[in-house]
Amino acid sequence: MIGFHFSNYDPRQSGKSKFDQLLDLFTQLLTYTSGDVTEALQWLNELDKKYELTDDEYGMGDFIDELKEKGYITDDEQRGEIKITPKTEQSIRKRSLEEIFGKLKKTKTGDHQTYKPGLGDEVSPDTRPFQFGDMLEQIDFTESIRNAQINHGLDSFTMQEDDLQIRETDFKSQTSTVLMIDISHSMILYGEDRITPAKKVAMALSELITTKYPKDTLDIVVFGNDAWPVEIKDLPYLQVGPYHTNTVAGLELAMDILRRRKNPNKQIFMITDGKPTCLKIGKRYYKNSFGLDRKVTSR
């Protein structure tokens, strides 16, 4: 029969261990709780009650112990609370990357490819005569042998420097990126959670850039009434505040950061849910949440 067959999802058939199954859920919940381990574990317990994620052989206490043993969480004795470790922070970013980019279809490979000749591993169809300083691996031997046959004949085959042809490769450049994230109150307004998807996209992008393009620079800017930089490791902990949306402040800080970067390739990504509603004029905040304000948008 042609078509699709649907059935209930059974996590026990996924091939993962009980710990890995719970870890997937735990890292997802940490994104929703802004890194609050206690709240995430409480949610996980509620899910366990409803969906029977654990059993008599492996309980939630075993999972918590294993989290500590494997270095995902640690006890903060000074504050009397449990917190996640840098290992968990990176794990959250990796899982966000897999969630957002993991199902892309196969397409042309890339790595900041440009169409300028230079050192790289993307072969260009263009060739040119050999020049002093060219590397051996750049020589196109097929074209070079062809030139030698044409220039010297088959009977007395020789290859000289003038016969050599170089296969160009496309130069791969570096890029400086600033990622702006809106943390104004509207990101959770009317009961709609927009900040969690925003954090997932931000973590996925940061993990992609830091792993795939390690020579690039990435700066994170959050903005509400004001704008300020944060570290990549702080992304899981971002929370919405009682702020308006001062897009101008975010863009000004982003451009100021990029001005200090010597790289000529610069870009800004902004994650926001809507219109700007705030300006800072001197020490005073000018705010208007009721539609587009010409005074705000003209800046």
Rank of each mutant, 00 (worst) to 15 (best):
T54E: 00
L164M: 13
P11G: 10
E77C: 05
L253F: 06
K233Q: 14
P11C: 12
G110V: 08
L208E: 07
E168R: 10
D155K: 10
E168L: 15
I281W: 03
L218E: 08
T114E: 04
T211V: 03
Q149C: 07
Q13F: 11
S184T: 10
R294F: 09
D65K: 14
L208F: 15
Y243L: 06
D226I: 11
I257R: 08
K212F: 12
H152P: 06
P229S: 13
D126F: 10
S173N: 07
K215H: 12
Q28N: 13
I139D: 02
E52R: 13
T169M: 02
V296G: 03
T247F: 15
H5R: 13
E46C: 07
L25K: 14
D182M: 01
E77G: 09
Q239D: 12
S124M: 10
C278E: 05
Q21V: 08
G118Y: 01
G153Q: 02
F6A: 13
Y237G: 05
P276C: 10
L136S: 12
N45H: 10
T277S: 15
G250C: 07
G133F: 05
F223H: 06
T158V: 07
I188H: 04
T247V: 15
L235N: 00
F6M: 09
L119H: 15
R260P: 04
E192P: 03
P117W: 09
E143C: 05
T245L: 02
F132K: 08
D76E: 06
N45P: 03
I145H: 01
Y9H: 15
E57F: 08
S289E: 10
K199P: 03
K68E: 10
L104N: 12
G224T: 01
D36G: 01
R167P: 09
I145K: 04
K295L: 09
R167S: 14
E231A: 11
Y243Q: 07
L235R: 00
V296D: 04
P242D: 11
Y9C: 08
Q113K: 15
D170L: 14
P197H: 07
G3H: 05
H112I: 00
L208G: 02
R261Y: 06
H185I: 09
K16E: 11
P129S: 01
L136Q: 08
T175C: 04
G59E: 14
L292A: 13
V201Q: 07
G250N: 05
I188P: 01
K106A: 13
D293H: 12
